[in-house]
């Protein structure tokens, strides 16, 4: 069974690797946004040095980490939910449900492959470009890079869990666009992609840092910047893992209910 999922993951990786033009286009776009955001952050940190506890170099690193992780962690869409929703809408999902493989595990594997490709194809290049143009903070050593990668992997799992649960709503809402938009909104704002969550004021900031979207960018970025060490690092991972489990569980429950529904309706 594990072999099957490994094959599915490899397929997800290869499938995205074939879109080379799209990858280059994506890197270009991420870099353009990186530039624009960098200049706004420079203006902001010029006025308020050490805002949110970040130095200017930290803030710039944050910008480019954000651009690198957009597709990896599904900040603005998981990259698979449209396809899944379309299958639900057209009823093709019935075929998937009768497969011997578990639906969620199947899509999870495919997404893991996609995510891995996006990290290599669309994550590395913008960060390299950003690092060349703007001098920003780099992790202290291989250990710090590794810690960052673990946080990214967990973030990608949370991202998958969010978008999978969102896609499941299409079983009941037929046109899942409304829910997708809400999730998109959450991702955009509460992931901290526009502005780091530790710059958010008061209660808004406290709440934002507890929501699942914080796992996608804020936590990996803080791990990158070395703000978590030792037990705190374990705590950060645990935060991500908790959200991953809760949301994956929610997706499973929705899937189970939907399966009953499909079976009762006969597809």
């Amino acid at each position: 069974m594990l072999r099957l999922y490994a094959t599915v993951a490899a397929g997800g990786f290869r499938r995205h690797a074939t879109y080379r033009v799209a990858t280059v286009a994506g890197v270009f776009t991420n870099s353009v946004f990186g530039f624009i955001l960098s200049y706004t952050y420079i203006a902001l940190w010029d006025e308020r040095p050490m805002l949110g506890g970040y130095s200017m170099d930290d803030a710039l690193a944050y910008v480019w980490i954000g651009q690198a992780l957009i597709t990896v962690c599904g900040l603005m869409g998981g990259g698979f939910e449209d396809e899944l929703i379309e299958r639900i809408r057209t009823g093709d999902i019935a075929v998937d449900l009768y497969r011997p493989a578990d639906l969620q595990a199947w899509w999870f594997s495919a997404n893991a492959g996609r995510s891995a490709y996006q990290l290599l194809g669309r994550g590395v290049a913008p960060m390299a470009i950003g690092a060349l143009v703007f001098r920003f903070t780099l992790p202290s050593g291989p250990g710090a890079w590794l810690a960052f990668l673990v946080a990214v992997a967990l973030g990608s799992v949370v991202g998958f869990a969010i978008w999978y649960a969102v896609a499941m709503s299409a079983f009941w809402l037929l046109d899942g666009q409304g829910v997708v938009q809400v999730a998109w909104l959450g991702g955009l704002f509460f992931s901290g992609m526009l502005l780091p969550l530790n710059v958010f004021p008061g209660t808004l900031g406290e709440v934002a840092r507890l929501l699942p979207w914080a796992s996608l960018l804020q936590v990996p970025a803080d791990v990158y910047l070395g703000r978590y060490q030792g037990r705190a690092l374990a705590g950060a991972y645990a935060f991500q893992a908790c959200w991953a489990l809760v949301l994956l569980g929610a997706g499973r429950m929705a899937q189970a209910a939907a399966t009953r529904k499909v079976v009762v309706q006969g597809g």
Partner: peptide, 9 residues
């Protein structure tokens, strides 16, 4: 067809 994202920039 795959370069649509460039327009977004």
């Amino acid at each position: 067809q795959d370069a649509a994202e460039v327009t977004n920039s």
